[in-house]
């Protein structure tokens, strides 16, 4: 995995991120509900979740999984170099799931004097099922 943070060190196709989160716990969903303000009981109340068709009970907030992605991205590139982060919510995550986030450089270019790197990102559970996929842009420093 590429650790280099300089534009010159990063190439299209490089793997840039690897972060494992979890296993997800119900307590974390309660904490995230309070922190984010998303109190949809689908995420905290097993009876409610079952009543609306989730046979195993509560599911994680999609935004919590995006939070994991944000953590993964900013463990590779400093927060103040992140220009854009976008995801698509592809699947539901449940307590017990371990989420692994990985990323790959898909483009690098100079825009208005900034060295922009675009990477794809994907978050999968222990079965390989995709929970979140997306991409981010970051401005990297140059050695020059």
């Amino acid at each position: 995995m590429v650790q280099g943070k300089y534009f010159e060190d990063v190439n299209v196709g490089d793997a840039v991120i690897e972060l494992k989160k979890g296993p997800l716990q119900k307590l974390q969903l309660v904490m995230y509900a309070g922190a984010s303000g998303d109190f949809n009981p689908l995420h905290t109340d097993d009876d409610f979740a079952k009543a609306v068709g989730m046979k195993d009970g509560v599911i994680a907030h999609g935004m919590l999984i995006m939070g994991f992605v944000g953590q993964a991205v900013t463990s590779w590139v400093p927060k103040n170099r992140l220009k854009r982060l976008g995801v698509r919510f592809a699947g539901m995550s449940k307590p017990g799931n371990t989420i692994t986030i990985s990323g790959e450089v898909t483009d690098k270019r100079v825009v208005d004097g900034e060295n922009i790197v675009t990477c794809s990102i994907v978050a999968k559970d222990e079965q390989g099922d995709v929970k979140v996929s997306g991409s981010f842009d970051a401005a990297l420093p140059s050695k020059a």
């Binding site: 974390q28 904490m31 309070g34 984010s36 939070g67 994991f68 953590q71």
Partner: peptide
């Protein structure tokens, strides 16, 4: 701090002002 902890992101820039300033924020 609460959001970072709920995510489980213990990057000190979110938790500690001195660490954030040292990192350029």
């Amino acid at each position: 701090r609460e959001l970072a902890k709920a995510i489980g992101d213990f990057n000190p820039i979110y938790l500690d002002r001195d660490a954030a300033v040292k990192a350029g924020y």
